[in-house]
Structures are given as structure tokens and as C-alpha cells.
Design a protein around this nucleic acid. Structure first.
Lengths: 179, 179
DNA sequence: TGCGCCATGTAACATGTTACATGATTAT
DNA sequence: ATAATCATGTAACATGTTACATGGCGCA
């Protein structure tokens, strides 16, 4: 369900096409929700059928036509209700941790290589959070409170990834004592 | 794919039924992978078709018959290979963060209620990590290194959830300055 | 009398991924 | 030449959830 409302939120900022939505997902929400273009086009059709959006076809010269999706009042109301729902812990599906569960089949250096690989991914992600582009995104919020919330989202990602990076380093150190 | 190998790992400890597997998932792996019984039975059929397991039907009196799944040599080899794969960041799908993205539609007290609700979930989860049962689980590892790894898994969960809990409290404090 | 444990499964649905499919324009 | 950008979509598949279906035993 979250995808639907993530999309509605974007459409409530400004009407856009599936192609535009994909770009927004890749550039801003990438860190806590992802979607492929197949999923986005499918979901746009559903949103329209449910009356949460309407479509406007914009003819363009030279480039293909664009279908601009506008949120309806019903869509805005549905979004408001969903945003107020009680949250739960996201169901974790952490491949690395499953691998480590059964990693006693590998040598210690092999396990360390895997952990280092994961640490490298974490560092890349953290570097992205630090870029100017990501900081500016939060400044596009429409009210001071929205800007505060968007910065809090970045803070969440940074904190969690940093905690995992510390854990990776701790775990490698401990492993070196297990030959 | 992870589910398949999470199951193979359990079957390599001791042959068991789908019912047993479900209990193991609920009691030990629950924190970083989950599965419903439908999924487990479906996957067991697949594992058998791929020759990674064999089945032994154990007649029982009074209770329904049991199908014990045994891992094969091919299964053990497939597990070893999978465990050595290079890890990636798990794709995050964090409903709370999507909600917060669009939460400017709510009043500040409403947002704080949601954050507090999430903080409550985190505390419950952290309390589980601290119980004796969870500590003992790690002690069932078959080698010192496996016990070390299983404790590291618990450490990962604890660290990440604690980081999120700190973030929740920080964010609530900051929000109280935004009326 | 009703609930939880034991133990299996199927069916329908929702969600997410990958590959297939088209086709013009612009930059290297 | 060839790749990227713009812009749409479908088909097949993989994965995950919920509801339906059965049936005996032991406990409160």
C-alpha cells in the first residue's frame, strides 16, 4: 500500500507523469522506498480507477506525449487518512544476516571479505547522504515543519547506516580472534 | 532466494518438517527474516524438485503424519555457494518514513503520537533481544565461531533498533519546537 | 464448550522484478 | 556509431499475504 501513497504525495506537490515519478523515486525517496517503472505505471492505472487521480494528456512535439496525473480531492483525503495510520516495524529481510547465520561453512578470511563488502556498500550510501544535493532536497519542503521532517528522514538513514557500519567493524575485529 | 537458503541452513542442522521450520523462523530468525507457513510449504516442494532435499514420511499415532525433509549433498553445496555471495544493502521499505514525508498534513501532536507509537514498537523489540531465551539461542551454535556469529546477529539488531529509538526521541524533541 | 497445539496443504490476491517492445532526439 | 534521455506500456515470473480447508487431542 505504501507505494500508492508515496506516489499520491508526489502528485499532491505537482501533477506529473509516470516517467517523472520514477525520477523522483530515484532521486529523493530512493533511500526508504523504491519502485520500478512497471510498478509505477501499473499503480497509476489503479489510482485512476479508484478515482484518486485524473489524467490529462499533454501532446508534445518531438518527444512522446505525456500523461499528467492530477490528484483529486478524494485522493487528498485518502492520503491524509493513510498518513495518520499507526506505524509498525518494517519487516526486515536482511540477506547478509541470513548469510552470516550459516557462514560457519566458510573460512574466517572469506567471512571477513563479505563483511568488508557490505561495509563498503554502507560507506557509499552514507557518502550519498552527505552530498549537497541530498541536503538541498530537504530545503524544498513547503513549510518549516515539512523541511524539518525531510531533514529528519535523512537523519534516520544516516543514523541507521552509521550504526550498521560500526557493527561491521566491531564484528570484523572480533572475527580476527576466531581463526 | 534468501528464504530457500535460510530453510536449507536449518535443515542442515537437523532434518525437520514444514511445521518445525515455521517454529524456528518464529523463534530465532524472526528478527531478520520471516515466512508464513504457506510460503514454507511451497518452498519445500521447490527444494525437493531441485534435488536439494529429500523427504521421509514419518507415521505418527494420534497426531498427523510428519514429512521430514533432509538436505542432500547437492543442497549442502548450493548453500555453501550462496553463503559466499557478495552482499548488497537490503532494499528499504519503510512505511513510517513515507508517512513522515507527507505528514505535514497532520497537526504536530498527531505526528508525535505516530512517532511515539513507533518508538513503542522499537522498545518492545529491544526488550525481546534482551531476554534470556534470545541469549541462549546463540549458545546453541555448533562451534565457537558460529556462536560468535549468532551473537553478532543479535548485536546487529540491537544496534540498529537502538539507533532508531534515539532518532525517534531526537525527532520528537525537535518537533515540539514546531507548533 | 472453546481454545491451542499438532500437521498438512490450496487458492486467491497483492506486490515486486526482469525482460520484451517501440521510436525519435541529442550528445560524445 | 552508440549511448542516454524522453515516454509509454505489457508479459512472465518471483515472492509474500490472507483466507479457506481438515481433524484429533488435551486442557481449562
Amino acid at each position: 500500500m505504501s507505494l500508492k501513497y508515496a506516489m499520491l504525495g508526489f502528485l499532491d506537490m505537482i501533477p506529473m507523469s509516470g516517467y517523472d515519478l520514477k525520477k523522483f523515486f530515484d532521486s529523493s525517496v530512493r533511500f526508504y522506498w523504491t519502485a520500478t517503472h512497471s510498478q509505477i505505471y501499473r499503480t497509476l492505472t489503479e489510482l485512476e480507477q479508484e478515482g484518486l487521480t485524473t489524467v490529462e494528456v499533454v501532446p508534445q512535439t518531438d518527444v512522446p506525449n505525456k500523461k499528467l496525473y492530477h490528484i483529486t480531492d478524494k485522493g487528498r483525503e485518502a492520503l491524509r487518512v493513510w498518513v495518520g495510520e499507526m506505524p509498525e516495524l518494517p519487516p526486515l529481510r536482511h540477506k547478509l544476516l541470513v548469510q552470516l547465520s550459516w557462514a560457519d561453512r566458510l573460512t574466517t578470511p572469506e567471512i571477513i571479505i563479505i563483511l568488508k563488502g557490505y561495509g563498503h556498500c554502507l560507506q557509499e550510501r552514507l557518502a550519498l547522504y552527505g552530498t549537497a544535493g541530498q541536503r538541498e532536497l530537504a530545503e524544498r519542503g513547503r513549510t518549516p515543519r515539512e523541511r524539518y521532517l525531510w531533514n529528519a528522514l535523512r537523519d534516520n538513514g544516516e543514523s541507521v547506516y552509521r550504526a550498521e557500519l560500526d557493527w561491521v567493524n566491531r564484528t570484523i575485529e572480533g572475527l580476527e580472534a576466531h581463526p
